[in-house]
Every structure is written in structure tokens, then in C-alpha cells.
Design a protein around this nucleic acid. Structure first.
Lengths: 227, 227
DNA sequence: CGGCCACTTGATCCGACTCAACCTGCGTGG
DNA sequence: CCACGCAGGTTGAGTCGGATCAAGTGGCCG
């Protein structure tokens, strides 16, 4: 299940497996945990909704989207996972979303059973795990407000601020994902995302240098829209 | 805007505080935890977004909504909490949503510090807490798909199935909340909710007996829409 | 240089929102 | 016990934001 979609444009199992750990802070008390590093090509599936959750993951480099799909193809991306983020901690031993690499990515893979074993006897690790899940929940709560109640411009503004915040609030954003991904994250169509980008640029709120590189020019205006 | 609706027809602090516990299953290993029972009248606030999270709660009877509010009044209800549900476990010591009684409700209140103390030395309790949060996250993931990608009819269908599932899949639903609450939960307007109810009724999918009592007539049809 | 994929832009459409009128059931007081 | 008031709900007419359908454009890679 993990490897079924291995594509020829990637190296799912690198020649020399590298090892990583749950490092500083997260599961620091569980240094015995180590994971193999795997590579996934763009759009390659890491795991699918409904599959056995044998592993949990940490993004080493690149970007991962987790989403739900409807039978007719409608897709809702729940979260983007960037370098340093964990994902795949679903309950009940089954994944409830599908995970795919947005761009070529390296991911650390940990045996779920090992993680559970650690959490089952290590209070600090258990707390870390809870905090991680609680943070995802908080993100989801904010995102529900966005999806249920915000306009297209407000959604894009919030998205740009979120991406910027993840990059240290530099005002310089390099988007790893395509318009379609942004659209499926924000509950819009790609055309509407594109139009909203154009609008913000016309108003001098952001500056686009190609489709992927964004510079925030009027952060206050974005923040006024986002909330 | 938030407080304006506090009404005088309620008894926030009852004359004789009762005591309850985290009972069977949940925090079973932490029998020392006990909470005072409080009563809240309809639309009464239990806690506000941004407030110190001094307590955590369990619904004894009634129904509670937790929601986020925008400055201009747009509201997104994240979840309805019914009898037996816990709520208010926000991280960082602050509540990230507002909680209000949907109807007159009784709620068990627990000191957050006590809960944290238990969780900090009891692995079973820690696991329970994580599971609880992970379940909320799973609900939020489903709800993001609904809010981002589903039509009005599909949203209402999913809502009715969710409410029915909470009542043991009897097909008989007594809704505690008003159209406005349903709308703010589903990311719609109350008019659209009302219209969708009427449509489903015309098609014989549901039967309405007053606005609050719903009987599911064609569950398969609802399920086909909901997913 | 050619081709394609991603993106942008334009024209039209449609589902849900808005605004407004009208029901309906229930509690209350005369 | 009835009439009134009103909160909540339904229904209708018209509007609008974002979706859809359809060209075009741009940039990158081969």
C-alpha cells in the first residue's frame, strides 16, 4: 500500500536508506525512534484514504497535501505539510485522507507500532502527540470558518498570510503548489484563485513574479481581509 | 454582538451544585476527577473565544454549539456537542472558539489544571485525551469537505445522517437547534436550509413534523447524496 | 524552435444569497 | 378561552459571486 504507486520518475526507496529521528522537541524523549527516508515524485501517492495506517511520516523536504476525494472527483485538501511537519497520525489504524507529494519530496517514515509503543509508556511523548493533533484541530477550526464563510479574496488573503507565516513572515513566498491545489485547499476553482491573485496584484497588495513567487506589499490590507 | 443575547431566563449557577465524574471509559482511570454541574439557558455563553481556558466541560443534557465569529457577524459553527460529549479542551490555555448552549443545558465542569495533572501522570488518561482530540479532528476533516465542496442538498443530507447516527440510527430525529444554527454549521443561509428541507420533503426523502422533528424515509437516498 | 502545461482572461451561467412578504404555532394576557 | 404578538419558519423574486465553458497567453523543457 505504501509503495504501490511507485513511479519511475522518483526514487521511493533510495539506494542507501538514510535515517532520521523525531528531533528537537518532538518526541525528544524517544530518541530510539528512527525512520527511513523515502523520496516521492510530484503527485505521487504516499498513502490512500482508507488504507491501513502502518506508518507515520515527517516531511524532510518538499511539500505534501492531504485531502479527501468525492466519487465524482471533487477534492478538498485539508492541509499542506511542509518541511518539518508530521502527518499520517490517523486514529483507528486507518488513514482518513490521501497523502500525495505536491513536488518532489523526501519524507521520513516511522513504524506506527513503534511510535505507539513509545507513546504508550512515555508521558512526554504522549503529550507531544496530543499537542500535534490539537494543533491540527485548531488549524481545521480556522479552515472551517474560511471554507464556510469567507469570500474568494478573503480566502486567498488568509492563504498567503498562512504560507508567509510558515516561512518566517518574510513577505517573500515561494509557493510549491499549483493553482489547482490552492483552489482545492480554499474550496474554490482554479480560475477564481487566478482572478483573485490578479485582483490583489492590481491593487498593489501583492506582487507576482511568475505564478509561484509572491511578494506581500501591503500586509495590513491582507490581514484586514483575512479576519 | 457576542453577549447581546444573554438572557435572563436561565440559571448559570444553580442553587445546589451537583457532582459528576468522567465516567465509564473516558478517564475511567482518573476517578478522582469530579466536576460541578452547571445549568445554562438557551443561547447563554459558556465561554468565549480568546478567554482563559480554566475549565473543560462535558454535556450532561441539552446541546452546545462551539463556533467562530468574524467581526461583521459571520459565524461558523464547528461542532454541536450533545449529551455525553466533552468540549473545551483547547491548547495553549485559551479557548479558540465560543461555546453557547443551544437549548437549556446541564454541563459538568472540570478544572483544567486537575485534568492536566491527571493526564501528566496517567498514560491511559493521556491516550483518552488524544483519542478525543483526534476524533474531533476527524470530524473537522469531514466537515471541511462538506464546507468546501458539497452542494446545499448534500450538506443537509450529511447533517441529517450525522444527527441520526448520534441518536442510534433510529431514523427519528429531534433537532435541538434552529434553522440559523444549522445554516451556520453547514455554511449556508437559513433560507437555503429551509428550502433544502422542503425539497427533501417533496421528494419523500424526509418527513417533517414541525421544524424540529424529522423522520428519515429514504436513507439510501440521503447516503447517496452525503458521500 | 516547437509543444505543452500551467496560468490568465473573457463570456455566460447558475446555485445560493439577499431582501421581502407571508405563514404558523405557541405562549401570554385580557 | 380566545385574540394577539411574535419568534421561527417558509416561500417568492431578484441579484450576485463564483462556477463553468472557452479562448488565449506565457514560460519552460526538450
Amino acid at each position: 500500500m505504501l509503495m504501490q504507486t511507485i513511479r519511475t520518475n522518483s526514487t521511493p526507496v533510495p539506494g542507501r536508506p538514510q535515517f532520521g529521528t523525531f528531533e528537537t522537541g518532538l518526541f525528544a524523549s524517544a530518541a530510539e525512534l528512527s525512520g527511513m527516508s523515502l523520496s516521492y515524485g510530484r503527485d505521487e501517492e504516499i498513502y490512500g484514504e482508507g488504507e491501513d495506517a502502518e506508518f507515520v511520516y515527517k516531511v524532510a523536504s518538499g511539500a505534501v497535501r492531504t485531502y479527501k476525494l468525492m466519487r465524482d472527483g471533487r477534492r478538498q485538501i485539508g492541509e499542506f505539510h511542509l518541511a518539518g511537519d508530521f502527518f499520517g497520525f490517523d486514529i483507528g489504524g486507518r488513514h482518513h485522507l490521501t497523502a500525495e507529494a505536491v513536488i518532489d519530496s523526501k519524507v521520513l517514515v516511522f513504524k506506527r507500532r513503534q511510535v505507539e509503543a513509545v507513546v504508550a509508556h512515555n508521558l512526554d511523548a504522549a503529550r507531544e502527540l496530543w499537542l500535534m493533533t490539537a494543533n491540527h484541530l485548531q488549524h481545521a477550526e480556522d479552515h472551517m470558518l474560511l471554507l464556510g464563510r469567507k469570500t474568494a479574496r478573503e480566502r486567498l488573503a488568509a492563504f498567503l498570510l498562512e504560507m508567509d507565516a510558515r516561512n518566517g513572515d518574510t513577505g517573500l513566498i515561494e509557493l510549491p503548489m499549483l493553482r489547482r491545489d490552492i483552489a482545492d485547499y480554499l474550496g474554490l476553482t482554479l480560475e477564481t484563485v487566478s482572478r483573485s491573485f490578479s485582483e490583489l496584484q492590481c491593487e498593489g497588495v501583492v506582487e507576482l513574479d511568475g505564478a509561484r513567487h509572491v511578494t506581500l506589499r501591503k500586509r495590513a490590507m491582507l490581514e484586514a481581509m483575512g479576519a
